[in-house]
Design a protein around this nucleic acid. Structure first.
Lengths: 206, 206
DNA sequence: AGATTGCGGCACTGTGTAGTGCCGTATTAG
DNA sequence: CTAATACGGCACTACACAGTGCCGCAATCT
């Protein structure tokens, strides 16, 4: 009711810009350091805000981080943002360049930082799942499904499992092995696992 | 030189049992809570030791945790500890029962807790890689290679990539999705990804 | 025995950070 | 105008934990 900006109240209005700036700053810090090292002080400084401005909007640190995760930009993982090169192999590979390095590498870092939070804050699982895990899986599922639809491959035995291969293996490598997710690695997964698990359609191809 | 237990020194000897008890307690706490929540106090209490006894043996918290990781028991992942049921499928599945739930689930929790440490302590990567990541991958590589050797499957295009599939996907699921790694899930990976990516050998099989 | 070191328990210091209160200033409604 | 609210900056409290010193006791060497 009174949540509209133009409520019949006196006083200065909250700057809607600030919300976005603070959430972005939170994601930045989260992408750079660990969850435990994310201090409100740091976020406030990064956002050019006072701590009060943060506490006025969110209950505490956890609420802030949850809100930030929820607004992670995953637009590039929607059907419209995905590459369409003609073959599944180059589609999957295309997802690497401006995406893994621009969008998804950031997502991966955030995912990694938030992992510490996941183990103790149950609601963090939902936030991460909705904002990061599900969109990633959905993107790969979409690409594979489209390749099947166009007759490039037969419908696999378990599409959901296959769609999780790349996000899982990329996360494992970047995260636990601290090694770069580069083209060479992606190719080894794409050719050695994903495409290897797919079969040509029953009708002869090529 | 003077490192042997019977050095010509006066005074009470260090209890070698204590080292093991403290490291085990560290792993226990690490498996139950997050890295940030691992307090020396907690470890000491769990080990029935005083904090001094810990600080006398290790420089600080990080050294302690690194030492604990290094002594993670991965004997069950050596060739002698692995199942040998006759088929790759049941070998992979057999690794789930007393192993994923007994040994590897614990390893997974530890892996997850330590992830926060990985991002800031470079040496943690080595410790985790040596103690947990490499042995797991090696175990799956061994099982697949053996199946190839006995003629069950042809040598895959990329054995290393395939050997990482299960640890990666299990970690991703347990860790980021906070869902159980049960038989149903394992079967979906085994049948939907790993075995799907393997081909019968050139000579007709069965 | 006497000296020396290990051990558990307690108290203490130092540090870092979440969260709050206050102040001066800016914005907006009436 | 005045009142009310937002904002940045600063100071302050509360708390948790790393790391250390001290005490009394136990074990082992000469």
């Amino acid at each position: 009711m009174t949540s509209t900006p133009t409520a019949g109240k006196a006083g200065r209005r909250r700057d809607p810009e600030k919300d976005a700036q603070i959430l972005q700053a939170t994601l930045d810090v989260l992408a750079e350091t660990d969850y435990a090292d994310v201090t409100i002080e740091l976020v406030a400084a990064r956002a050019g805000a006072g701590r009060h401005t943060i506490y006025r909007r969110w209950e505490g640190k956890d609420e802030l981080i949850l809100a930030a995760i929820a607004c992670t930009d995953s637009a590039d993982l929607g059907p419209d943002g995905l590459p369409d090169t003609g073959t599944l192999r180059s589609d999957l590979l295309a997802l690497l360049d401006p995406n893994w390095m621009g969008g998804s590498e950031r997502r991966l870092r955030i995912l990694s930082s938030v992992s510490a939070m996941i183990t103790r804050t149950p609601s963090a699982v939902d936030a991460v799942t909705k904002a990061i895990v599900d969109p990633s899986t959905a993107a790969y599922r979409f690409l594979i499904q489209r390749a099947v639809d166009r007759g490039e491959y037969a419908l696999p035995h378990n599409l959901d499992a296959l769609a999780q291969v790349i996000p899982s293996m990329a996360a494992y490598r970047a995260f636990f092995m601290q090694q770069v997710v580069d083209e060479e690695f992606m190719l080894s997964i794409i050719d050695g696992v994903v495409l290897a698990a797919l079969r040509e359609p029953s009708a002869a191809n090529r």
